[in-house]
């Protein structure tokens, strides 16, 4: 097999705060081949976005990478200079942020921003850049794209803003896209249209994709592999069918059970008992143990890897997997 496009090894990212250090990402490792789609799911606050920011070199100070490597095409991004990183961003690696206003400038017109994104990495005549921007808007399902180019972000609906941010990320056909909850506010029809554009890009251009989402139905249909995060760690990883149909880790199992369509209408929804532990005060050993039905004394020490290489989890007592 070829060397992976992205190889994240033991990544640790922390935010010092007055109350102590928040270990937002704690020893995360995964690899990604060109054209591959990795779904990154997990508890809210488990470190998915921070993993993305770390790869992009966009951590908000005082947050910083405290350990590990991020090899992109063999180069360690964690050690790259700001300037080199800037020239990679947008051209070879792009991120679709959970907050579209991290991409968009509220005081600039949409056309100005899109044309800027194109011209930052390519030399094209103005008119061509504008046409390219218009087509990109149409691609993500914005009606009347020509006229909408003249608008400002606040004149767009929430989902439209999200789609402009997607269009900007796709516009230079990068090699790696980190998409952070990019379709949270989009209805199924528009979601399908965008997913089909993205599938085209991965198939035709070999773009690799990290798709951060809580939407298991999207993951199940889009991703090759899925990684599940809990409290800063990847607790389970494997092929999407294995992880969702036969979850090994008790957290993943609880997550899959909470999907509304698996519950009777109007009845209380199944939820994982207890609360997310404070990031400043994680239980020793397995961080899930205060909420886990299978926990015992052993779980107070760091859990080992269980399962096979293509479907692993970190747990002392994984659920039985019947193949």
């Amino acid at each position: 097999m070829n060397a992976p496009l992205l190889d994240v090894r033991g990544l640790k990212t922390a935010f010092p705060t007055r109350a102590g250090e928040v270990k937002a990402v704690d020893d995360v490792s995964f690899t990604l081949q060109s054209g591959q789609v990795l779904g990154l799911v997990g508890e809210s606050g488990s470190g998915k976005s921070v993993t993305g920011f770390s790869i992009m070199g966009l951590l908000e100070p005082p947050g910083r990478i405290t350990g590990g490597e991020i090899l992109f095409d063999g180069v360690d991004l964690a050690k790259l200079h700001q300037e080199d990183m800037r020239s990679l961003r947008g051209r070879r690696i792009a991120m679709i942020f959970q907050d579209p206003m991290m991409t968009l400038n509220p005081v600039l017109r949409i056309d100005t921003q899109m044309i800027e994104a194109i011209e930052a990495h390519r030399k094209v005549p103005r008119g061509e850049a504008r046409a390219c921007a218009r087509d990109a808007l149409a691609q993500v399902g914005i009606p009347s794209p020509e006229e909408r180019l003249d608008a400002y972000p606040h004149q767009f609906s929430g989902g439209m803003r999200q789609r402009v941010a997607i269009a900007i990320a796709l516009i230079n056909r990068p090699d790696l896209i980190i998409a952070d909850e990019p379709t949270t506010a989009l209805d199924v029809t528009i979601q399908s249209q965008i997913l089909s554009e993205i599938q085209k890009l991965t198939a035709e251009h070999g773009t690799a994709l990290i798709w951060i989402t809580h939407d298991l139905s999207v993951v199940s249909r889009l991703a090759d592999d899925v990684a599940v995060m809990y409290a800063g760690k990847i607790v389970e990883r494997g092929a999407v069918g294995d992880v969702i149909d036969r979850p090994m880790h008790p957290y993943t199992f609880g997550l899959v059970q909470s999907v509304p369509s698996r519950n009777r209408k109007g009845a209380r929804l199944a939820q994982i008992p207890g609360m997310t532990p404070s990031p400043l005060d994680l239980p020793a050993g397995c961080a899930f143990r205060t909420r886990c039905g299978r926990a015992d004394e052993a779980c107070a020490t760091p859990p080992p890897s269980a399962g096979a290489a293509d479907h692993v989890c970190r747990c002392f007592h994984p659920r039985e997997v019947t193949a």
Binding site: G42, H214, P260, A270, T276
Partner: peptide, 8 residues
Amino acid sequence: ALDVSIQA
């Protein structure tokens, strides 16, 4: 923006 368990 919530994972399914917290959403529940």
